[in-house]
Design a binder for these strands. Structure first.
Length: 779
DNA sequence: TGGTTGATACTATAGACAGCATGTC
DNA sequence: CTATAGTATCAACCA
């Protein structure tokens, strides 16, 4: 092992600050830092000749194995520091973990890291979509993972972690996120506790208290306002932009502020990125900009943009509402970007904006936190956002506004970026300037004391054996960022309440010692919110053997892990009717523990279930999106969430309610593929989804057996593709490839007890380990 | 009478992680 | 707790 690895910094942690923006003379030549020649060559091959000042400053300690927190604006090259620290650790025979907040970011970092493969760095990725088997993990040097996946890895434990030398925490300021911040915080705490002297490379946006975070991480604190492309931030009022440096710019033209600002920047050859606070607004504003943008495009540009609409994907040979709207906009050089788009639609939009075919893009905050799509001018129309905690608009935190501003200025295309916030009057302009743009961003505060977060993490800490007593629990929390910055009393109070909940819910054994029950272990492994697990378990407990799909889907939808859909005005009568029709069979009822759902929220769960049911009845996607006014992207997300929860439900059923495990497995497949029961077998074939399975079925192939030995011509006629038919028949012939028969899926890890249904209580005393439960018998 | 305009009431509201084992149309 | 834009509804008003 290299002596430097894991050496904690000595003495008081120094703070350094680098200022200024990027003139080439600020750069630090590669040769000035302890970089190996072969690495230097690789960097030059990527076009990196010199380091930006904050990079250079962070690289010193980072390459000496010290922990570093680098707080500076987006797109100032923070990741490179992380990559080089990872590389150094790998060369010292260690492994590195790269934590990211988004799956898209995981792909991006993984791709960039693969550039170092030439130096022997084997990088892999672990996210929900795509997980690595343990054997492959063992061969990796660097793992890029979402914090949730890292958390799951820590819960399960892995020999791979033994060699851990460095952990990178990207966007570490997201610790302030109420939903997902605690996972990052807990993961970092666990990693640091398990690996004393672990090198932490934390990358953060500019935040009010980055120094505090650095102290917690025992990291050298480096801040900088350096940007490779200089940024001016200002407020627009009546045709004048007043910047924070007090300079003023007059905007050409006249008329409404937004089109005027857009036209102004397009005329000088830049692009505009507009942030609004609702999806609807993103579409409408995009539409309203059509004339403006179109008139500032050349004939050639229009010709290129016209082709974009053809790139939009169709689903099931039809166009979704989203595609139709987009294809009306794209030829005019404008688009919108929000979460109702499918990934395929998003990709088209993003690529077109990157290659500058699109001149203006109107986006919800999807884009502010995610992938890097800069534009010369960022225009922020809305500075408030609906917040369901208060049920009203609330000001968007300065940090988030500044994050949006940071998207201004495109390297190589723009010599400077401009971020403009729209003000309605002089007093608002002044306020925005003083309180939002020119003021320091808010401090990052731990959200670990939030009860939902604690439910999961207290259970996980106990279940994974990280803590086994009250005292250990307390010392763990003392080591968190929360413990580092806030008085522990409040947290301890909540932990006590959470412990009570976990004990009464049969997740933890009662008594002074902290120990998880089998139910607790299973819940933690499944990564379920304990409340979800409880809802599912009690629902399964009252499920009859012949349980229909709808009540199961409604139970899934009532879980806090499946966020509610909004009710429209007209929905209520239909849903009340559904409620009445199904009341006897529903597994979760309104105003019943542990959820206590008000009728309106309950109806929302019925709406979700109705949508999912229609999906499993093979209702075409386009029809679904129209009937329920739900975006195709949202539909996809709901289906994925439901599929995930059904897996959890299935595992719980195997353990506690074996007789319904089978219908749940069947439903799980139906939800995954959106098919009726009769297509379940066909859909198991590679390359066959809901549409093709239905075609095969209509052609007389009711299952895989009926396809075996079928003539190529018949299969080809059914599917309309020769190569696909060939592939299919080959798949059926080759001995290893067909997936195991249906019951094997349900059986493979069957661990259910013979306990009968009577709610959560009945299995509550189960203290046997999972291995003690026999396979459940064939019917 | 028919159509337009305007005052008023009402309505709806951002995003996206996790298990497992591999590929939609 | 800290809202607002878009839309539906209906009355007043004009040709």
């Amino acid at each position: 092992m290299e002596p430097n690895v894991g050496r904690p910094p000595k003495g008081p942690i120094p703070t350094a600050t680098a200022h200024g923006s990027g003139s080439p003379s600020d750069r630090v030549a590669i040769s000035e830092l302890p970089i190996d020649p072969d690495l230097a060559g690789l960097l030059r091959a990527q076009g990196i000749e010199a380091f930006y000042p904050p990079q250079a400053e962070a690289l010193g300690p980072a390459l000496a194995g010290e922990s570093v927190l680098l707080a500076c604006p987006t797109a100032s090259g923070k990741s490179l520091v992380a990559y080089l620290a990872l590389l150094r650790a790998v060369r010292a025979g260690r492994t590195g973990l790269y934590l990211v907040p988004l799956r898209a970011l995981a792909h991006e970092k993984h791709e960039e890291l693969s550039a170092f493969a030439a130096l022997g760095v084997r990088a892999g990725i672990s996210i929900g979509d795509y997980d690595l088997p343990a054997e492959k993990l063992e061969k990796l040097d660097v793992l890029v993972a979402t914090s949730e996946k890292a958390d799951a890895l820590l819960r399960k434990g892995s020999p791979w972690l033994d060699r851990l030398g460095v952990v990178v925490a990207d966007e570490v300021h997201l610790m302030r996120d109420a939903d997902r911040g605690p996972t990052l915080e807990v993961s970092l705490t666990r990693l640091m506790r398990a690996h004393p002297g672990l090198q932490v490379v934390a990358l953060s946006a500019t935040v009010g208290n980055s120094k505090e975070i650095a102290e917690w991480l025992k990291a050298r604190h480096i801040t900088s306002d350096f940007r490779p492309v200089p940024l001016k931030v200002g407020v627009h009022l009546e045709g004048r932009i007043t910047f924070t440096d007090l300079s003023v710019r007059t905007v050409n033209g006249r008329g409404e502020p937004l089109p005027r600002l857009v036209r102004d920047v397009l005329e000088e050859g830049g692009q505009a990125l507009v942030f609004v606070n609702t999806r609807k607004a993103s579409e409408q504003v995009a539409q309203s900009l059509v004339a403006t943008v179109r008139s500032s495009m050349t004939g050639t540009e229009r010709a290129i943009a016209r082709r974009l609409a053809d790139e939009l994907p169709s689903v099931e040979e039809e166009q979704t509402e989203g595609v139709r709207r987009l294809s009306g906009l794209l030829p005019n050089g404008v688009a919108y970007h929000n979460a109702s788009l499918t990934n395929a639609e998003r990709r088209v939009v993003e690529r077109a904006f990157k290659d500058r075919t699109l001149k203006a893009l109107v986006a919800t905050p999807t884009l502010a936190a995610g992938i890097n799509l800069p534009a010369r001018r960022v225009i922020i129309r809305d500075t408030t956002r609906y917040d369901d905690r208060v049920g009203m608009q609330a000001p968007i935190p300065a940090m988030d506004i500044q994050q949006m501003c940071g998207r201004a200025g495109r390297p190589r295309f723009d010599s400077a970026g401009e971020a403009v916030v729209l003000a309605r009057d002089a007093s608002e302009a002044q306020r925005l300037l003083d309180e939002v743009l020119a003021s320091p961003p808010e401090a990052v505060r731990s959200r670990l004391a939030a009860e939902p977060a604690l439910r999961m993490h207290v259970l996980a800490l106990v279940a994974s054996g990280e803590v086994a007593s009250e005292a250990e629990l307390e010392s763990f929390f003392a080591a968190t960022f929360y413990g580092h910055t806030l008085p522990l009393e409040v947290l301890t109070e909540t932990v006590r309440a959470v412990r009570g909940f976990l004990e009464s819910g049969d997740f933890l054994r009662p008594g002074p010692a902290l120990e998880a029950t089998p139910f607790g272990h299973l819940t933690s492994e499944l990564y379920l919110d304990p409340v979800s697990a409880l809802v599912l378990r009690s629902a399964l407990g009252r499920a009859p053997i012949g349980v229909r799909a709808f009540p199961l889907l409604a139970a899934i939808a009532a879980t806090p892990d499946l966020p509610p859909v909004f009710l429209r005005r007209g929905d209520e009568p239909d849903l009340l009717a559904r409620f009445a029709d199904n009341e006897a069979e529903l597994l979760v009822k309104p105003e019943e523990e542990p959820l206590n759902l008000e009728l309106e929220n309950f109806l929302s769960t019925l709406k979700t279930a109705t949508i999912l049911e229609a999906w499993t009845e093979e209702t075409p996607i386009v029809e679904l999106t129209e009937r329920f006014s739900i975006g195709a992207g949202d539909l996809r997300a709901k289906v994925e969430d439901a599929d995930w929860l059904l897996f959890g439900a299935s595992r719980l059923a195997q353990r506690f309610q074996r007789r319904v495990a089978r219908p749940i497995d069947a439903l799980s497949l139906r939800v995954r593929y959106g098919v009726k029961e009769e297509l379940i077998d066909l859909v198991r074939l590679r390359g066959i989804g809901r549409v093709r399975a239905r075609r095969l079925f209509r052609a007389g192939f009711s299952d895989r057996d009926s396809l075996r030995g079928a003539s190529l011509e018949r299969v080809e006629r059914a599917l309309g593709s020769r190569s696909l038919a060939e592939q299919l028949l080959r798949q059926l012939e080759s001995p290893g490839s067909p997936r195991p028969p249906q019951e094997a899926t349900a059986r493979s890890e069957a661990t259910g007890s013979p306990t009968t249904a009577s709610g959560p209580r009945s299995a509550a005393k189960g203290s046997r380990t999972l291995e003690e439960f026999p396979d459940y018998p064939e019917p």
